[in-house]
Design a protein around this nucleic acid. Structure first.
Lengths: 236, 236
DNA sequence: CGGCCGTTTGATGGAACTCAATCTACGTGG
DNA sequence: CCACGTAGATTGAGTTCCATCAAACGGCCG
């Protein structure tokens, strides 16, 4: 079992971050090095807890997680999804405290995030952070102005795009392990309404979804339907 | 006209950033220095345009602005508000591109943001960025899970808190120049419904709003009503 | 087999939207 | 000084989308 150091050997973080800036050999090696101490987590386990100091940044190597906020009366909102290759809790301020909880949705593997230093890795972290902010902007627009149908299609677009960036989605179907209830908590809807809306979308031949996978049929039509623009945070 | 270098001489950015970390005299001086070349902008003027490269960071010195996103069919979502003392377009990645437009809502004054360097100013910028992210999380929760009444009260709380951090709000009423239509675009509602909801809140003796000012009556009751917790991104 | 989780279906209610129309305050120009 | 135009706030009636409550259904695992 050779420990390869090539550009994208099964490590979604390397695949993803290498697209954001040119990483040096030692940058890539430090990512692989960190991945040699993986931490396996079951589903529904806290990675960060709101108000609790953050020990150090982490990287999602496998599985899905989410940032979420719970209201006093039990209402729940998933703020963002964390997919393989994403950074978690990488803060620049001293003595940082988690502003939201982060919880695994499926069984997952994480590792600690190497210190960015000053070079290509720092740039890649910066781009990753800017993209995370962009995804929050999109989420706000989804919740504020899109209908239930549009919210679902738009978020599937985004998931596909992000999985592809980590080397985990091609042109066909892609992994989508969220239950309808979790999808509802993400999209500001109820599980019942998500169910009915999904049926509508299936009837209309817009999407396939089931068995932990999804696919967007006729992506070009759907792209217009939800006015989806590619994510772009820097030139080149 | 002496050019004071004290901690908070009328410069909301100094007031705000000095609360985030201990700024050196030269940090403070560089902020004042930047403010000596103010740029006056009318209302409804673009500060950043989506997809356009960002020249350099700016600081809001006076007035209100917002990040916003327009959909192809004319729907509009205000993503976040930018108040005096806030940073605009401070990016860490190279050749950054604006991910959203930023537009003045009132006549405003901005100046360029001094380079953060490595010391207290960099820490203050980091805290400011973390807070901005926290406000996005809150906005997502508002839009996803709060009722119209709750959204309005919650956002007024946040505005008051942020104005206070810049030294622009005491315990009583505070500036609130947004029209009902802009409030609607912020909260994912229609102007008509905002109007009716405001009347309800006024009848219930929860808020006062009008003439460009607002106040929260019985803040403790309202704090429970919307489960509002103070913003906190680091220890101390 | 029985329990659980997730999905599905039905019936009903309500929060928020849509489409007007009216009202008010305010500034501007004749 | 007043007629006018405009932006913002307000009101009304009718509609739609989504929530709520409740129950049934299917697969999976112990």
């Amino acid at each position: 079992m050779a420990t390869s150091t090539s550009a994208s050997p099964d490590n979604p973080a390397v695949t993803r971050l290498a697209r954001f800036s040119s990483l040096s050999t030692s940058d890539i090696e430090s990512l692989h090095e960190a991945a040699r101490e993986p931490q396996r987590l079951a589903a529904h386990v806290d990675i960060l807890r709101e108000e609790v100091p953050i020990a150090g940044g982490s990287i999602m190597l496998a599985g899905w997680a989410c940032r979420l906020r719970l209201l006093a009366d039990g209402r729940r909102q998933i703020l963002s999804l964390l997919l393989p290759g994403d950074l978690i809790g990488v803060c620049r301020q001293k003595r940082a405290v988690a502003t939201t909880s982060v919880v695994t949705l499926t069984s997952s593997i994480i590792c600690s995030a190497p210190a960015p230093g000053e070079g290509g890795l720092a740039e890649a972290y910066a781009v990753s952070g800017a993209l995370e902010e962009l995804y929050l902007f999109r989420q706000i627009t989804r919740l504020g102005r899109l209908s239930a149908e549009e919210r679902i299609v738009d978020s599937l677009f985004e998931i596909q795009e992000r999985l592809a960036a980590a080397g985990l989605a091609g042109t066909g179907s892609f992994p989508m392990p969220l239950t309808q209830e979790l999808l509802a908590d993400t999209l500001g809807l109820t599980a019942v309404h998500v169910n009915r809306t999904l049926q509508q979308l299936r009837r209309d031949g817009m999407i396939e979804l089931g068995g932990g996978r999804a696919s967007l049929l006729d992506p070009e039509r759907l792209r217009l339907f939800v006015d989806h623009r590619p994510a772009r945070v820097s030139l080149g």
